[in-house]
Design a protein around this nucleic acid. Sequence first.
DNA 1: GTGGTCTAGACCACT
DNA 2: GTGGTCTAGACCACT
Lengths: 135, 135, 135, 135
Amino acid sequence: MFIRLETASGIPISRQIADQIRLQCASGALSPGDRLPSVRALARELAVNQNTILHVYERLTLEGLLEMRHGDGTYIAKKLPSAGIERLREALREDAERLARRADTLGLGPEDVWKMVESVFQKIKKKGRPKGGNQ
Amino acid sequence: MFIRLETASGIPISRQIADQIRLQCASGALSPGDRLPSVRALARELAVNQNTILHVYERLTLEGLLEMRHGDGTYIAKKLPSAGIERLREALREDAERLARRADTLGLGPEDVWKMVESVFQKIKKKGRPKGGNQ
Amino acid sequence: MFIRLETASGIPISRQIADQIRLQCASGALSPGDRLPSVRALARELAVNQNTILHVYERLTLEGLLEMRHGDGTYIAKKLPSAGIERLREALREDAERLARRADTLGLGPEDVWKMVESVFQKIKKKGRPKGGNQ
Amino acid sequence: MFIRLETASGIPISRQIADQIRLQCASGALSPGDRLPSVRALARELAVNQNTILHVYERLTLEGLLEMRHGDGTYIAKKLPSAGIERLREALREDAERLARRADTLGLGPEDVWKMVESVFQKIKKKGRPKGGNQ
DNA sequence: GTGGTCTAGACCACT
DNA sequence: GTGGTCTAGACCACT
């Protein structure tokens, strides 16, 4: 499981982690029954405290997205919750709008933003993507 | 002064406000000597507590970006602080990257993101921009 | 709000607290809109860590029973969740059965249990009950 | 040996098992020299992990209540440990009090509790009790 | 004042 | 090994 933390963003890291797990569930990168890294393992990998991961897992478990099995591990719950991929795409659209406005304020045009976005897709394409995605 | 708050984003609202003021200073939308709305006026407009605005103004004053004149009002400081427009562009680039990755995870390609971004620029161009900006 | 912790019972104190808040909500001792003690106040009163109370409040908030308002306080949520008083009475019935079996194993008869139960009701009646209950 | 596990109660299952073995020793349902089910037999019967049973047997052995004979089996120790029936009756009294308080909060009176308790004793009397106990 | 995030660390319970 | 509870304490965000 790939989680990227952006420490400078001001967004609490627990929220970043939860959001990315939700995203990967919605996109199919994580499927029902998949086993997540253990609390300790993910904490070590992301260099955050175990309690922070535990908190995220608990929260997502209460949401019905995950299932924690005592002494065993943490899994993607069988049934996907109602809040689906469409809601996440809508959120993306809103963020894209905000980004475009900021770019404009900073004196950048659409083609500047295009370059930034495109280069990321190039990078992703080169090393391949594990699951999902198109183009 | 236009400030947009996104309460669902997880980013603290005080940070959102401060970032947008910095952005507008860097872009020239706000110029040295410009008077900012009063603490209570901005608090009312954004429907947040006055202390939240006060803290933002104080922090930006400490940064050297603003100048609070007791009994008078708050102004953009005469000289622009060292942290300039380039730093903000770099932050934008990082956000664009993050957005592109999320789009990819959600199964969207670069042209989907492009459409979102482009439509915003269309909107902005039509009604013109209040101050500063180019393209 | 009255919470009794039984440290010898083996039941985690966070669960005891959550159960008793749920119980008081179901019984009407706590009504929608009522303000709960602050995290710090309840922690002090029960001599437990603030994080323990916070954890309970968060959990009950995710369940929809409470509403935490940042910078303000914690309140009983407006609408009662579906899991109602009947479920709690059923749980009580099961516990009563278990108690009766234990009493029997220890060589006690129904009238011994009756005396224990009755004396508690006497005590409660004497000092009056703040809300709800009958006899 | 009859053990009832209540998974919803929040009481750790190892504690439930240990408590019930202690109870049956105190009441005479289990007598010195009696052989307990093997670790794996009890684990299978209760559908819990063998280590859970093992830990319970080890703990009770440390208490002096049980005796694990390597290669043979686990037995009730010859002499009863000091913690006697009176302590268990006191624990019962405390649980009865807690039950009565919960009943009161739920709007039930002593006679409602009485009915619950009494019906259990009726059931027990009818089919007789396997060992020990009186009334 | 209120809640919220995070760390460090101890110790427990279950597979 | 796995998750689960709890403490102590720092520091942040919002009313």
